[in-house]
Design a protein around this nucleic acid. Structure first.
Lengths: 344, 344
DNA sequence: CTTTTCCATGTGAACGTGAACATCCGAACG
DNA sequence: CGTTCGGATGTTCACGTTCACATGGAAAAG
């Protein structure tokens, strides 16, 4: 037999108090882990909560504490592996910390769309923000809206802005480029991401650093949009010129599209052209040839972002953990330069 | 000069009321679009809200209405394109309808993990649930928890359970299989998904239906886990037997892994083996050979799920929209059967 | 033995909003 | 011209929780 045939209304803290024969405040204390509660009393309250199937009312709590226990994620993904994994990891980590996550997706990267998404998150009363979107623009908009919400950015240029997570994209890109140089390539093209993404900018920087250090000719980078389709398009254009022996693409999807175009153009990867990507998405090792790329720990990045943000929310000294340096994974898409092509 | 130097507390409905020289209730009426408000009054209130930069307090509203305006998404993804896109679309649609979305990700598909995720969503006071996870188990758990939250499932077996979204996965799988049969294949293997996913079950059903209708030999299906790595593993095993001329994989990732394994084993796709996938993820057309697959409209599915759920929340008659029938996309990975292999 | 302190608990108020009911006023109706 | 009605607005209360403060008693300190 059930203890009480709930009469419409959900049991509140006061119902529990009545059943446990204490004041509602004592129940509240049990709920919040207040130290000054006798064990026996606490147990009685817990039993009563169990009996009534009591569940705290989040809205009431949020109202009085003016804390929503919710963090917002501003993303701009259409389902790509990287951001999606990070978001999933963010949710896991937040859940573990007792926080909720609300994601707003950018339909476009126009200021209007950004304002829209931010307004939605603000309406939701998020306590903090994790930004995984064209950061440059987002920061502009954020500044313009004069909001004082703590935020954390998912990727950085390596210069430790305290609110940015330190993933050394520059080092990763540099390693990828150096790998090509070590293989003997002198004419390397960079297929970059949209330049309003900090990641894209950082990867280009790393690429240029390596090129300049090796005193090689710099080809003008191609500005892409992260998609495999664009990679294919770029590959078609590139194969008309063939004044290069390797391409470093700013992400795997573009690299895969690129390889497709080269294949269609009769170019062999890696014999005629070497290709290196960035991200190490799960299919990267299964395409033909398996893609040499830079491995990113997306889940780890998500976890750290949450840790960083929650730390800031608690007012803790921002303990920047060690930088994550993404690791180069050499597979079949990159190989030694082929003499015939070097002298174009 | 700013109207009022906000003294700590955010402006409330009463502050607006004072400034507009009306009662707080009038402000509330303006907020909720009550009809009986004089235009002049409404304007005065709106001006006051603007001047104070008033923003309604969600918690207070939720407390008094006991409606959170939040829907929950139970997902089980590690960043795959399909579910991720659907989730993004769900967020967009929900936002447009003034709802918030809270996603809980399943760490594992164990009952404990499911209970965990559901509890989190319930704590968040979600008004309804969209399930994109091993539905079979989730439904069991849901039943066991005796929760009366309306929910909608993202994919169905085709039999219109009123709470399930009608994507005719069976028809899609059938079309894929029939395509192989039409090409002359008689020995077709199915690389299935985990059987506690309704999608996996449906795709296998469609496969079997086509096979049986064509009176072909049924190979025992291989039960996979949706990942490319598993596809590769399965491909390695399969290439040891070679008593088949085509494989229908339950999703593209597994299909791509499969092709990789066949390549490694010296089998040519599609000459020696035809491969068909399911989903049409963005890389599908860029792998080598481009993958024949069944195209799914993930975003549309997400949108419809929201529409269905919100309809149910409003108590509207469940207007099941037309079924979505995914479309076969023929590319290079499938071709006519090669005689030498038919007689294995 | 008195005073202080601290622990365990209770009391009342406040958070910002919407619902129910009350009130006022002018128009329509008889 | 009185009565009724409904539109426009105001008043009061409730939602479920936490916070600030109060209280009583026992232990510690003098």
């Amino acid at each position: 037999m059930s203890p009480e045939p709930q009469k419409g209304r959900a049991p509140s803290i006061r119902d529990v108090a009545r059943l446990a024969d204490v004041s509602h405040q004592t129940v509240s204390r049990v709920l919040n882990g207040h130290p000054s509660i006798r064990d026996e009393t606490r147990q009685r309250v817990l039993d009563a909560m169990e009996a009534l199937k009591y569940r705290p009312n989040r809205a009431a709590r949020a109202l009085v504490t003016s804390r929503s226990r919710t963090i917002g994620v501003l993303s701009a993904t259409t389902g790509e592996y990287g951001p999606s994994s990070s978001i999933a990891a963010i949710e896991d980590a937040a859940r573990e910390a007792g926080y909720f996550v609300n994601t707003a997706n950018l339909a476009a990267s126009t200021p209007a769309a950004i304002v829209d998404a931010l307004k939605h998150l603000v309406l939701q009363d998020v306590e903090g923000l994790i930004v995984m979107a064209p950061q440059v623009r987002v920061f502009d908009v954020l500044a313009g809206m004069a909001m004082d919400i703590p935020y954390v950015s998912l990727q950085s240029t390596g210069q430790s802005d305290h609110r940015a997570l330190a993933v050394d994209q520059i080092a990763g890109a540099r390693a990828a480029t150096q790998h090509l140089i070590d293989l003997g390539h002198h004419e390397i093209v960079h297929l970059a991401g949209p330049q309003d993404w900090i990641e894209a900018e950082a990867r280009m920087r790393g690429f240029l650093d390596a090129i300049i250090d090796a005193d090689l000719r710099t080809h003008p980078p191609i500005l892409g949009d992260w998609t495999a389709d664009f990679g294919y398009y770029a590959g078609r254009e590139l194969s008309r010129y063939r004044d290069f022996s390797a391409v470093f693409a700013a992400n795997d999807l573009m690299a895969i599209g690129l390889m497709h175009a080269f294949r269609d153009a009769g170019l062999d990867v890696p014999h005629d052209v070497s290709v290196v990507g960035f991200d190490d998405i799960p299919v990267a090792q299964h395409v033909s040839p398996p893609l040499t790329t830079v491995h990113q720990e997306f889940r780890e990045v998500g976890r750290r972002a949450v840790a960083l943000l929650l730390g800031e929310l608690r007012g803790e000294p921002v303990s920047q953990s060690e930088e994550i340096v993404p690791a180069l994974v050499v597979r079949g898409s990159s190989g030694p330069v082929h003499a015939a092509l070097v002298h174009y």
